[in-house]
Design a protein around this nucleic acid. Structure first.
Lengths: 334, 334
DNA sequence: GTCACTTATTGAATCGATTTACATCGGAAG
DNA sequence: CTTCCGATGTAAATCGATTCAATAAGTGAC
């Protein structure tokens, strides 16, 4: 059974296709009586509008595309949740793409979105897609970058002040008596890691007795935290840090695991702070102090910026920087 | 600047629009020379095909829709990942919808997918959408249900044997010496919880010395685990269980938190097992024994079933039940 | 009863890419 | 030299919904 179309509905309701369309899209142009007839016919035939045809004629697609770095990361699910919420209120479906940090997947999604003529794109970029994004914008598809300051670029962005986050963590650890802070986790090449580290270093520089040490890892997961901590513990006691600042919570969980197993008590012997404030930081056996990023708000704000750009393509580029927040838990406070 | 279209490309390449289309969709019908000219023109103009127009003419959309219950749940991100992987190999984009367990959001996504005329739908249903799904199928949009046996229904499904999972957990706990098992978590109304509980009960019934007790909670998160455990610990020692089987890992994390904080050692004093084998079960301070569901495989298999149904609408309905796997960790083994 | 004016409705054109049926051409075969 | 063929290329129809310009039907005012 082929699907019903406007023509069928029109016939069944005894009106013209144009009237059916009006009933659907401009109900005020149609009399009560025919409106009712049309709706009855739609109901009876189970008519569902063909979006492709509608879009073709309308010349635009109300949907917005979002490309995240890692769909499994709670941070990004929150960002996506915030964006979706806001877009739904605007009547815009959200198309979600997961680049999994792979450049070619990112490009695949950009192609898809461009072919679909989405109204706009939100993206946490992996590869070097800035030129492509600029072209998209000049082609009339506005773009908002998430989580990476686009610099003096002509693309709006929403980001977090990672340096400030590092500063907050170090500041708190120092105030709790730390003097030798190990910053653990992440390839140094990652911008976020670099900034968080830099922030911590800045704070430590203001304090004569304190020092920082950076322990790089290849990934940013629990296994990396475990390995790095084992290395730290193999040093003689004098050489060990009295506080660990993990560059994300997964790493922090790995650190905690090894510390506890080695009989080192947290926070008495070593203080521990993480980053991202994922759900599992609060639910760890010893709840972990962490730096919270306002993920949902960021997603929502990004959606707002995008909506503005869609409505008024001439609207000015805007860079919003959100401030992270320190969440104190047992891992740094007895 | 309006976007280029086939006409422009044709003009620039000095051929007809039909030839451009052929160059794109049936390259073998076009000579080397013109193929090159067309591609050059596409490059120069930055032409991007309009999917709406293509779809309208083609009469179908290759994309597949997936609706999950909770995008933040690692189980579902794995399911989605498995499905996406497989569909990508088939050249089918995946449209991801998150119902957040809300019935109206689920319906919104179904409407969207139907309007888009997606080639098929994968869904973990919330509300009572079975009638709707049947109608979709009879309208030519095949559906595969994830994580809920559709019974003698005419819709294919992919699910896990939760009863077996409960059985495995209880069996393992008993083999480790447990005699009084508390099953903790989840409103009893949830099918999964019921089945996992029933499986555990079945195993216990085979063992004269062992007993089960069910502790319901309103949600299935860490807070629920904490509350339930505090209640258990407020009993006098004799009345306490010697093993806890949490109906998911989040609950297990909450249980572990309270146990450790109360100075009860796991696994010496109390054994603990969870369900789902999320990443954080392995990364808990005391790694938690858990029941793993082959999420990615399930997603992949669901995509396969769907593809079969798309290719051959007359293909038979099929119900696949996956077997869960016991992952033993420290929380049940010294 | 006529004119001006609002309200309802409709036929036909349109969006952009694809496809179908047909035209063209160079050369091979007779 | 004619005929036929494969290889290329093209004009025009098509997908389904929406919109524009135009028609038809009411409503009042004079």
């Amino acid at each position: 059974m082929a699907m019903a179309q406007v023509r069928d509905v029109a016939e069944r309701a005894g009106v013209s296709p144009a009237t059916v369309s009006n009933a659907l899209n401009h109900p005020q142009r149609v009399s009560e009586r025919t409106l009712a007839k049309v709706h009855a016919a739609i109901e009876e035939l189970g008519y569902v509008r063909n979006d492709a045809a509608r879009q073709l004629r309308a010349g635009f697609n109300p949907a917005v595309g979002l490309i995240v770095l890692d769909a499994a990361n709670p941070y990004f699910t929150d960002v996506a949740g915030g964006a979706e919420q806001h877009l739904r209120d605007l009547g815009r479906p959200l198309l979600l793409g997961n680049s999994s940090q792979e450049s070619d997947r990112e490009v695949t999604y950009l192609n898809l979105f461009e072919q679909q003529r989405v109204a706009g794109i939100l993206i946490a970029p992996v590869g070097n897609v800035l030129p492509r994004l600029r072209k998209l914008k000049s082609n009339g598809i506005p773009v908002v970058i998430i989580d990476r300051k686009a610099g003096a670029d002509e693309l709006s962005s929403v980001s977090v002040d990672d340096e400030r986050g590092g500063w907050l963590a170090a500041d708190h650890l120092i105030s709790q008596g730390a003097t030798r802070i190990a910053v653990v986790g992440g390839p140094e090449g990652l911008r976020q890691v670099r900034n968080r580290l830099r922030g911590a270093q800045q704070r430590v520089r203001q304090c004569a007795e304190a020092a920082v040490e950076y322990i790089a890892t290849s990934a940013m997961d629990a296994a990396a935290g475990r390995t790095a901590t084992e290395a730290l513990l193999s040093r003689e006691a004098k050489q060990r840090p009295d506080a660990v600042f993990a560059t994300n919570d997964l790493v922090a969980l790995g650190v905690l695991q090894v510390l506890v197993r080695s009989g080192i008590s947290v926070p008495q012997d070593i203080l521990l702070a993480g980053y991202d404030d994922i759900e599992f930081a609060a639910n760890a056996t010893i709840p972990i102090t962490s730096i919270r990023q306002p993920a949902a708000e960021m997603g929502e704000h990004a959606a707002q910026l995008l909506q503005r750009a869609i409505e008024d393509p001439a609207s000015p580029v805007q860079h919003t920087v959100f401030q992270p927040e320190l969440i104190i838990r047992e891992s740094t406070q007895a």
